[in-house]
């Protein structure tokens, strides 16, 4: 899942980027408001984590702009302002969640996960596709009773496919949601990772889970 972090306070920006990366998200981060707006407008982010007091452009201004241009990304406001008016103003402008500094990193991650589930219409943190089970919180995967160990990148790919289970997803789409902006990887790596995933998930006595839809992309689970 791909996130954008717009936070001007350097230590916070650095540690959050690192922590979110390690939590399996593809993270683009910036410390400038205008740059943040550019990122938000030119990419498809699952969640945007937005500070309010920013140099260049105010966080609420960014929020207003991306909503007015029809961007559907979920926005989590991260700020030291905690008055009722501030919170209401943020939520009224189209923010989906609000977290007051200082916060526990785990809570931030949990809220991001909740927003992700919401964006894919998935309320249950435990996703099932046929006999495949994915625990979105602990990031553990089972096929039947057997637990399968995945690398963070493999897991991120499977999670994205599972969130949109039954839909055909293009390579570019997958690539956009799994890799951060600065990544040197091209969409071809998607094929490579799909190969890795198949090797780990498929069992000879069970039907294949990931199907290749020629010319369009990939699909996990149901649908013919």
């Amino acid at each position: 899942m791909r996130l954008l972090l717009v936070e001007d306070y350097r230590p916070l920006n650095q540690s959050l980027t690192k922590g979110l990366n390690e939590a399996g998200f593809a993270v683009d981060s910036t410390r400038d408001g205008k740059e943040g707006l550019w990122y938000a407008m030119s990419n498809e982010y699952d969640v945007i984590i937005l500070d309010i007091m920013l140099p260049g452009m105010d966080g609420l201004e960014i929020l207003k702009k991306i909503r007015s241009r029809g961007k559907k990304s979920h926005v989590l406001i991260l700020t030291a302002k905690d008055t009722l008016e501030d919170r209401v103003a943020g939520l009224d402008l189209g923010a989906d969640d609000y977290l007051v500094k200082p916060f526990a990193f785990e809570e931030l991650v949990a809220r991001v996960r909740a927003l992700l589930r919401r964006s894919y219409g998935e309320k249950n943190p435990c996703v099932r596709v046929r006999d495949l089970k994915i625990d979105l919180n602990t990031k553990r995967v089972w096929r039947g009773r057997e637990e399968i160990t995945l690398t963070p990148r493999e897991y991120a790919l499977l999670e994205y496919l599972a969130m949109r289970a039954g839909q055909t997803i293009s390579r570019t789409d997958i690539w956009e949601h799994i890799y951060e902006f600065r990544s040197s990887a091209s969409s071809n790596v998607v094929d490579v990772y799909i190969g890795y995933l198949r090797r780990k998930l498929d069992r000879s006595n069970k039907p294949d889970l990931i199907r290749t839809v020629r010319g369009l992309g990939y699909r996990l689970g149901a649908g013919s």
Binding site: Y9, P11, L12, Q14, S15, L16, K18, G19, E22, A80, V100, K101, P102, F103, A104, F105, E106, L108
Partner: peptide, 14 residues
């Protein structure tokens, strides 16, 4: 609050 958030997330991530 902001520097406190910085300290906290730096430590938690570490």
């Amino acid at each position: 609050r902001t520097p406190l958030a910085g300290i906290r997330s730096t430590i938690e991530v570490a």
